[in-house]
Nucleic acid binder design. Structure first.
Lengths: 209, 209
DNA sequence: CATGTTCTCGAACATACGTTAGTTAGAGGG
DNA sequence: CCCTCTAACTAACGTATGTTCGAGAACATG
C-alpha cells in the first residue's frame, strides 16, 4: 500500500468521503496547474488512492471537472442569496448590493480551490462543458442586474453607466480578489468593508466641482 | 486570419514572419485552451507549417510560452509608461493615474491574446518559469504603488485604504475587462472613460453625509 | 551552373496520458 | 459458510504529445 501507513482498520466508514476527497484535491490541482496539466494519477495520489480507483467514483475526468465547476459557482450563489434574503424588506439598494458583495466574497474566498478553479479554467474548457455552465452563469448575472436596476430606479446608482458594465466591472474586480486575498492580513470582515467601500465610492476623493 | 489562402509561392520572404506567426497563434490558443491543452501540432497548423518546423524557430514549447508571456506584460507596461510620461509635469495625480489606467487598458485590450494568455496562464506555470516573470511583475506593481503614494501625499487618494489594496483591486478589475470587453459596443475611448470614472468615483452616488 | 544557407517536411521515438479490465479483500446478511 | 456488495488494487491498451533528425526544396550568391 502506497498510502501513508494508516494501519487502523477504518477502511469502512469512508462512505463517500473518498469521493469528496477526490473532488477537493482535483479542485486544488486544477486551480494551480490547470485542467489539462493535472493528471488523474496526481489527483489519485493526493487523495491517497490509485488512479484506477477514481473510476469507481467518477465516469471520467470531464465529470470531475464538471462537479468542481458546479461546486465553485454554487457556493458563491448560495452565499449571496442567503445574505440578500435575510435583509429586511425596507433595506436600501445600497445595503442589498453590499450584502451581495459580502456573499460573493465569502463564497469566493472560503471555497478558494473550487471558485478559483472555476474562474481560471472556465475560459479553457470545450464548448460542450461550457454550455452547461453558461446557463447558471447567466442566471447569476441576471440576479445582479436586478439588484442594480433596482438601485438605479431608486436613484442610488450612478445613472451614466449601464448596469451591465457596472456588473461586469464589479464581479470581475471581486473575482480577482481570490488571486491576491491574504487571510493573514486582517480579518475577512475588514476586507469586505474595504472592498465594498471602494466599489461604492471609488479610490479617489471626490473631485472639487 | 489563420487561413490566408496565399497560393503564390511566398514560402520565403518569411524572414522572421513565421516566427511571429507562431507566437501569435500560440498566444491565441493558449488563451482559449490553456497551455497544457494546446499542442504544438495545433500551433503549427494555425501557423501554416508542420510541427517539426517549429523547432527551427524555438527550442521548446516552454520557450514559446515564455515569449508569449513577455509580450503580454511588456505591451501593457509600455503603453502605461508612454502615456504617463507624455503628461506635463504639473499634471494632477488623478490625471497621472487616469493615464496609467488608459495605458493599461490599451495594452491589455489591443494585445488581447498575449495579455489574456498571460493573465490566464500565469497562475498555472511551474515555479521555474514563474520566477523569471515575478521580477517584472514586481516592478510594474512598484510603478503603480509610486503613482498611488504620490496621489495619497497630494491628498487626492482616499486615505483609509492601503495603496497596496487599491492597486490590487484596480489592476485586478482592469485585467478582468479583457474577458468581457466588446469593441463592437462603443468606442475604446468611451470605454476608458467609463471604467476610469468607476474606478475613481465608484458605482453608487455618494451617500448623504 | 555550382554551392551554401535558410527553412520546412515527414517519419520516428520515448514517454505519459485517460481509460479499461480483471482481480482481491473485507463486511454483512442469510 | 456462501454469496454479494463495496472499494480498492495492478496491469495493460491505445493514443497523443513534445521532441529529434536526416533529407530535401527554395532561394541567394558566386
Amino acid at each position: 500500500m502506497a498510502t501513508k501507513t494508516r494501519d487502523k482498520p477504518e477502511t469502512v466508514e469512508a462512505d463517500s468521503a473518498t469521493r469528496e476527497r477526490i473532488l477537493l484535491e482535483a479542485a486544488r490541482l486544477f486551480r494551480h496547474h490547470g485542467y489539462a496539466a493535472t493528471t488523474l494519477r496526481e489527483v489519485a495520489d493526493a487523495a491517497g488512492i490509485k488512479a484506477g480507483s477514481i473510476y469507481y467514483h467518477f465516469e471520467s475526468k470531464d465529470q470531475i471537472l464538471g462537479e468542481v465547476l458546479d461546486k465553485g459557482i454554487l457556493a458563491v450563489i448560495d452565499a449571496v442569496q442567503q445574505r440578500v434574503n435575510s435583509l429586511p424588506a425596507k433595506a436600501t439598494a445600497r445595503q442589498r448590493v453590499a450584502a451581495a458583495i459580502e456573499g460573493h466574497l465569502w463564497g469566493l474566498l472560503h471555497h478558494g480551490d473550487f471558485t478559483s478553479a472555476n474562474i481560471r479554467v472556465y475560459g479553457q474548457i470545450p464548448p460542450a462543458a461550457k454550455n452547461r455552465h453558461r446557463k447558471i452563469r447567466r442566471e447569476y448575472a441576471d440576479y445582479w442586474d436586478r439588484l442594480l436596476e433596482d438601485a438605479l430606479q431608486r436613484g442610488e446608482l450612478r445613472p451614466d453607466t449601464s448596469t451591465a458594465i457596472i456588473r461586469l466591472f464589479v464581479i470581475g474586480a471581486l473575482n480577482w480578489t481570490v488571486e491576491w486575498y491574504n487571510p493573514q492580513k486582517g480579518s475577512f470582515q475588514d476586507f469586505v468593508k474595504q472592498i465594498t467601500s471602494i466599489v461604492f465610492d471609488g479610490t479617489f476623493l471626490r473631485e472639487r466641482g
